[in-house]
Design a protein around this nucleic acid. Structure first.
Length: 139
DNA sequence: GCCAACGTTGGC
DNA sequence: GCCAACGTTGGC
């Protein structure tokens, strides 16, 4: 089981929209960056990912689950990039903001802080658990 | 194959 | 709206 963080601008694709998709999930398309692409390809069915709102909010709002592994992104005409399907798993009782992450000694080394432009990034197990705790998750 | 110019992302 | 970071493009 691996952990990830996926970013979306809420005015393009928000957590609320993701929730409405329910168990069917939604294709996570639009990645046009090779580092992010490699991360997408490394995702396995059942992996969990934090859902982060960039620009507006700048906070982790929920937990998504990978339900389909990497396949060609239909929205990419060049055929080079891939997407995965994700579904909303559960919202965080309390969103964890970027400001909090930056202030937290355990989290300030996160890719989210260091490589702010990367839209799909790995999260370590320690980071995952800590953010869950901050977000008010029971476990 | 190097590197400058340019475009995009995203925080502030 | 500005700017820093970084990826991509194109001339040589």
């Amino acid at each position: 089981m691996a952990y990830w963080l996926i970013k979306s601008e809420p005015n393009v694709w928000s957590w609320d929209q993701q929730i409405k998709k329910g168990a069917t999930g939604e294709a996570w398309t639009g990645v046009r960056n090779h580092t992010a692409k490699q991360n997408l390809e490394a995702m396995k069915k059942g992996d969990k990912a934090f859902f982060y709102h960039s620009n507006e909010g700048k906070e982790i709002v929920g937990i998504a689950e990978v339900i389909r592994e990497a396949y060609p992104d239909a929205s990419d005409k060049t055929g080079k990039f891939v997407c995965v399907d994700v579904r909303a798993k559960e919202p965080l009782p309390r969103p964890v903001t970027l400001a909090e992450i930056k202030e937290d000694a355990k989290l300030k080394a996160m890719a989210l802080v260091k490589y702010s432009r990367l839209s799909v990034q790995p999260v370590t197990a320690a980071e995952w658990e800590h953010i869950c705790k901050l977000g008010g998750m029971k476990k």
